[in-house]
């Protein structure tokens, strides 16, 4: 009898790809993350059959949570059918047998890169955000051991200094996406590179947000109904992207996050970034029976938590005055 005969034949993969040991570790880390909002929990981070930096962190979290009864929505830049989102969705369904949807209301798990849906997520839904760089302090302290000490001390002076410098030089905050936020009055957190438009959605949200960086091996969470505030000086308010003049070329919708599409003649046209939402609007306009959920921003651009976003400063008003 040889070893080959004794060995088991080549097997297929475990349910949802990860072995039970890996899933258990991830779930424990996720629970820890939920228990300490905004705290980066280190985890081993398994290699997956997609390249590192392509959503392996989000994917591990999704795979450790998904079951056959789940309905999964995967988006990249707001689009369900971008090649990367399609690829991740194909892998998740192949490995878990879960249903997929493009409708944010129907999904139990939404894995996303760089966007939150326009429709307000509800209790029981889980948003999994893919994170390239989990460390908001990386810009001021690239050494991870030192950055951990700064977090432990809640020593965020340098983060504020970066904002101060921006105001001195440009008269405004110029951090684009991944705007740093204070979570639960304790940890400064990188909300993943979502646009500023989406940042307020994390505040006192009904849904659970899990953020996971596979390459950097850190995951963190914003539990439901947790305070999340962008870092802003008391006299210079944080502002979301100003797209109030833009209307979607397909639906005519305004005051939602838009893609700007440059045209040959130097002008631009605009289109909703959230393709699942756009699809529903189009179907609705065609007279089909679709349920469109309430959105974070109403048609006038008002955010659903009154007073959370301070009024936009006029363009000429300089904080230095």
């Amino acid at each position: 009898m040889s070893l080959i005969e004794l060995a088991q034949p080549n097997q297929g993969y475990s349910y949802a790809f990860l072995d039970a040991f890996a899933k258990r570790e991830l779930r424990r880390r996720i629970l820890k993350g939920i228990a300490i909002p905004g705290y980066q929990v280190p985890y081993a981070s398994r290699e997956l059959p997609i390249a590192r930096g392509w959503g392996t962190g989000g994917l591990q979290v999704t795979l450790s949570l998904v079951g056959p009864d789940d309905t999964v929505k995967v988006i990249d830049q707001g689009a369900d059918d971008s090649v990367n989102a399609a690829n991740l969705r194909r892998f998740i369904t192949r490995m878990s047998g879960a249903e997929t949807t493009t409708d944010a209301n129907q999904a139990t798990i939404i894995q996303s890169r760089h966007r939150i849906t326009e429709e307000i997520l509800r209790e029981g839904q889980t948003l999994v955000l893919q994170v390239p760089n989990p460390e908001p302090l990386r810009r001021v302290e690239p050494d991870m051991a030192k950055a951990r000490i700064l977090h432990a001390d809640a020593d965020y002076g340098q983060m504020w200094l970066v904002l101060y410098e921006q105001l001195v030089r440009f008269g405004r905050y110029i951090q684009g996406a991944s705007y740093p936020v204070m979570v639960h009055e304790r940890f400064v957190m990188a909300p993943s590179p979502i646009p500023r438009w989406d940042t307020p959605d994390l505040h006192q949200s009904a849904h659970l947000t899990l953020l996971s960086a596979g390459r950097e091996k850190r995951l963190y969470a914003v539990p439901p109904y947790t305070n999340v505030y962008p870092l802003e000086f008391t006299d210079v308010p944080f502002e979301v992207e100003d797209q109030s003049e833009w209307a979607c070329r397909t639906t005519g919708e305004r005051n939602k996050f838009m893609n700007e599409l440059p045209q040959d003649d130097g002008s631009s046209v605009f289109e909703l970034s959230d393709t699942g939402y756009m699809e529903k609007l189009v179907n609705h306009q065609r007279g089909e029976d679709v349920t469109i959920g309430t959105t974070y921003y109403d048609s006038e651009g008002q955010f659903y938590h009154d007073g959370y976003l301070k009024p936009r400063r006029s363009r000429q008003e300089s904080p230095d005055a």
């Binding site: 002076g157 504020w160 000086f233 008391t234 210079v236």
Partner: peptide, 11 residues
Amino acid sequence: ERLLITGERTF
């Protein structure tokens, strides 16, 4: 930065 450390948050 010294003032920021003490919690001053008005630009």
